[in-house]
């Protein structure tokens, strides 16, 4: 019964991933047979200043979008976890933004952030606030993408609500009797108990932030203005499918995998300390 899963994992993921890794050490353009060229692809990409700009963009994006997502999820989970009137409706509303298809989500935000006619800037102007050019201005474009990615907090919120409900209310009662305020019981009870789940969420969001950035970049900015919103998956896609530099694209993929792996490893070390793996 495991056969489909295991064979699928091998044929559709493991083999292709290994193939990508092997291609990183070859000159390959898909039209002529691959030629082994050692680390030449890596030296070529490392020499390009655009590559380093993109690595920096990717790190900024992942390291701001993922924590914002986790924090947003935490805030909403704490707000919406009680079993009160209307709570399921509010939760569903928040969750909906996370289930929208990527293409639709990107197109909606492309419209919302339209610098002149978009509702966001119309609302800001109405309120007398400054109206940034969002995706058009190289200084704000990456920030706008972070914002768009960070708003998708639905799944994280559900996970944290579930986790929050496992905290026995007797703990809070005891704290209240001891005279602890709301903030204090949050800090001493809720937060420690939720931390493993927050870290789990952070791992997922870090990996997802990098991997799922392709569609928004592709639809909303095409990597511009200049290289301001070019992130690694988009650069890799362009190198492979527009310029047919598949060897170099594979080398960049290897670097990206290393970056994501490093980030995830760092968080998972924290997780092990908190004993999250025992729950799985």
């Amino acid at each position: 019964m495991l056969t489909p899963f295991l064979s699928g994992a091998i044929v559709l993921i493991a083999l292709p991933a290994l193939m990508t890794f092997a291609l990183a050490f070859m000159r390959y353009d898909a039209l002529t047979p691959p030629v082994w060229n050692g680390v030449e692809n890596f030296t070529a990409i490392f020499q390009r200043d655009v590559f380093w700009i993109v690595v920096r963009n990717t790190l900024i994006f992942a390291l701001s979008a993922a924590p914002l997502q986790a924090l947003g999820a935490l805030g909403l989970a704490l707000l919406l976890h009680p079993q009160r009137r209307g709570a399921p409706i509010y939760r569903s509303t928040v969750y909906l933004s996370s289930v929208l298809p990527d293409v639709a989500y990107a197109l909606i935000w492309l419209w919302l952030l339209n610098p002149l006619y978009g509702p966001v800037n119309l609302a800001l102007a109405w309120a007398g606030l400054p109206t940034p050019a969002w995706l058009v201005d190289p200084r704000t474009a990456l920030g706008a993408l972070v914002l768009v990615a960070a708003v998708r907090v639905g799944e994280g919120m559900l996970l944290l609500i579930a986790a929050r409900r496992t905290v026995p209310s007797s703990l809070f009662d005891a704290a209240t009797i001891d005279g602890a305020g709301a903030w204090q019981s949050f800090r001493t009870i809720t937060l420690p108990l939720l931390t493993p789940w927050l870290l789990l969420l952070l791992i997922r969001d870090l990996a997802m932030a990098v991997h799922s950035s392709f569609t928004p970049v592709y639809i909303m900015t095409g990597g511009g203005p200049g290289y301001a919103t070019t992130l690694l998956p988009f650069l890799i896609y362009e190198a492979a499918f527009t310029h047919l530099r598949i060897g170099q694209a594979s080398a960049m993929m290897t670097v990206m995998f290393a970056i994501v792996g490093l980030l995830v490893w760092m968080v998972s070390v924290l997780m092990r300390r908190w004993g999250v793996f025992d729950a799985l």
Binding site: D29, A30, L31, T32, A240, F241, T242, H243, L244, I246
Partner: peptide
Amino acid sequence: AADFAASAPPDVFLINYRRYGPYVARGA
């Protein structure tokens, strides 16, 4: 590019001379 990469190119395609270099240089 993806079609060529998969050795399943269109039989005929319409392209600007500024953009056909990668294909013509590789004998495609």
